[in-house]
Design a protein around this nucleic acid. Structure first.
Length: 484
DNA sequence: TGAAATGTTGGGGCG
DNA sequence: ACGCCCCAACATTTC
């Protein structure tokens, strides 16, 4: 009952509510909560996360520290390499065990293996990043699921194992007084990190996360089934960053939705949202079983795919100057807000990989750097799905028409108007296809193709048939090689 | 968690 | 009254 526990906060768990390591430690003696500010966060090598996520991280750490202080403790922030710092502190502070939340990300798993070897006390990993531990769901043959629908059915059968969220500990013991904390830092400010504050970002921290959840349940969830696809409306939960940094636990979200007393017409919406959470489970489960997916396509016939290298196309896609309004809106929203509507992510990813034929891994890396909600597993699954090479991906010949997607899911053009203001004065009829607008309409809207807004970088029909032809021939070739 | 091409059907205009 | 054409509207298939 007098054990001393180091609670190792890893960045996917920045909360005190429903935090199994913290609750577990609080029941068994003294608690030392630690977060390591690792130079890896600032490194250039993937999977680096960028400034948007760093702002959300810092805000979340500040609040985590406040919440721990309210309970009688505090967050100790130490700078250095995680794999060195945690074992050293465990030794220095003479802790009896280290407890942390399990992480899906392969690099984090490598770190925890190295740390476990260096520690002379147990490293205990507890669940919380996902609703169910990876490897819970297996097909009849004992293999991982390759298709979402059967995975979701299997999930439904054991969904009651998710359980109820834990309350935050009522009180935490103060930090042991003998503890040397000479090397601990104040949580650095953004300015100290050389990052200028971005007012477009949602605020981090546990309180903001709970507010977002409540507002979603109250105002958005009932119409989620249709609303989630509308790029121009706030029809989604906006909880992705919170789930990724763990300012709210996915179990808390799941539980809250299951407790919702839904009007009959809203049942479809509840199911649709739960389905999205199960997609997240599927992504984590898949990456857990196949960490190599961060490097290579799942489908073997996509190895050596003839992706194009074209700096001009790449820059246009990154900056939002492809001449396709929805694609450009998505690019600019990403750079500005560190968040993109899911429908726009799909259209942008499809455009990069199919119309421009650029390697999905470049897009995946760019998204990981820019997104606040940068989650390796979901990001990788999304990109491999879009490129058509993932597990349960859409077939390669399923190619989004960015114009049609815009007209269907941004019918008045408000999404485009917000992010591509040079088109704002175009009427809804032409806003998704400015190149097709009559000259007088463009003139009235002050749009000059090639001047105020770029000509479409590729022709949709031509790009579509180029991809179909190359993909089909490559896949046939790969299949023939595999047979022989 | 597509889109485009192609096929089918059925109502209405018209000779 | 009838066949013919046109063409939505919907269904199926192909990429």
């Amino acid at each position: 009952m007098t054990a001393r526990t180091l609670v190792w906060y890893r960045g996917n768990d920045l909360r005190v509510s429903d935090h199994r390591p913290l609750s577990d430690a609080a029941q068994s003696g003294s608690v030392v909560p630690v977060f390591v500010l690792d130079p890896h966060f600032f490194a250039v090598k993937p999977p680096r996360r960028g400034a948007h996520r760093m702002q959300f991280l810092i805000e979340s750490l500040v609040e985590l520290n406040q919440n721990l202080a309210r309970l009688g403790s505090k967050l100790i922030v130490v700078s250095g390499k995680t794999v060195e710092v945690i074992p050293r502190l465990a030794r220095q502070w003479n802790v009896d065990r280290v407890v942390a939340q399990r992480v899906t990300e392969p690099l984090a798993r490598e770190w925890e293996e190295r740390i476990a070897r260096l520690l002379s006390v147990p490293l205990i990993l507890l669940e919380g990043e996902t609703l169910l531990p990876p490897r819970t769901l297996r097909t009849g043959a004992g293999t991982p699921y390759l298709v979402f629908t059967p995975f979701a059915r299997a999930f439904a059968k054991v969904a009651d194992e998710v359980g109820s969220p834990l309350l935050a500990p009522r009180k935490l013991p103060p930090l042991p007084s003998a503890l040397s904390v000479s090397e601990t830092l104040a949580i650095p400010s953004l300015a100290e990190l050389g990052i200028s504050a971005n007012r477009h970002l949602h605020s981090g921290g546990e309180t903001a996360a709970k507010r977002r959840l409540q507002s979603f349940l109250r105002t958005t969830l009932a119409d989620y089934a249709e609303g989630r696809d509308r790029m121009d409306l706030p029809g989604t939960s906006r909880l992705s960053a919170d789930l990724s940094l763990g300012t709210i636990s996915v179990r808390t979200v799941w539980d809250a939705v299951c407790r919702c007393r839904a009007a009959p017409r809203a049942v479809r919406s509840l199911d649709a949202f739960r389905n999205e959470l199960i997609w997240r489970e599927f992504a984590h489960s898949t990456l857990w079983d196949r960490p190599e997916l961060l490097e290579a396509p799942f489908r073997k016939d996509f190895l050596d795919f003839p992706w194009r290298k074209d700096d001009g196309d790449w820059d246009a896609w990154v900056q939002g100057t492809t001449g396709y309004p929805v694609v450009d809106a998505a690019a600019r929203q990403l750079l500005t807000e560190g968040w993109v509507h899911n429908r726009a992510r799909m259209v942008a990813a499809s455009f990069l990989t199919k119309h421009l034929m650029i390697d999905f891994r470049l897009g995946e890396k760019h998204y990981l750097e820019q997104l606040v909600d940068a989650d390796c597993a979901s990001n990788n699954m999304g990109w491999q799905w879009s490129a058509g090479c993932g597990c349960d991906a859409q077939p390669y010949f399923r190619i989004f028409n960015p114009l049609v997607q815009g007209e269907r899911f941004d019918p008045d053009g408000q999404y485009v108007r917000r992010w591509v203001p040079e088109l704002a004065k175009l009427p809804a009829k032409y806003i998704h296809r400015p190149a097709a607008a009559p000259g007088a309409v463009r003139l009235a809207a002050s749009v000059v193709m090639g001047k105020t807004y770029p000509e479409p970088r590729v022709d949709h029909v031509a790009a579509r048939s180029r991809f179909l032809q190359i993909a089909e021939s490559h896949i046939n070739k790969a299949r023939a090689n595999a047979d022989s």
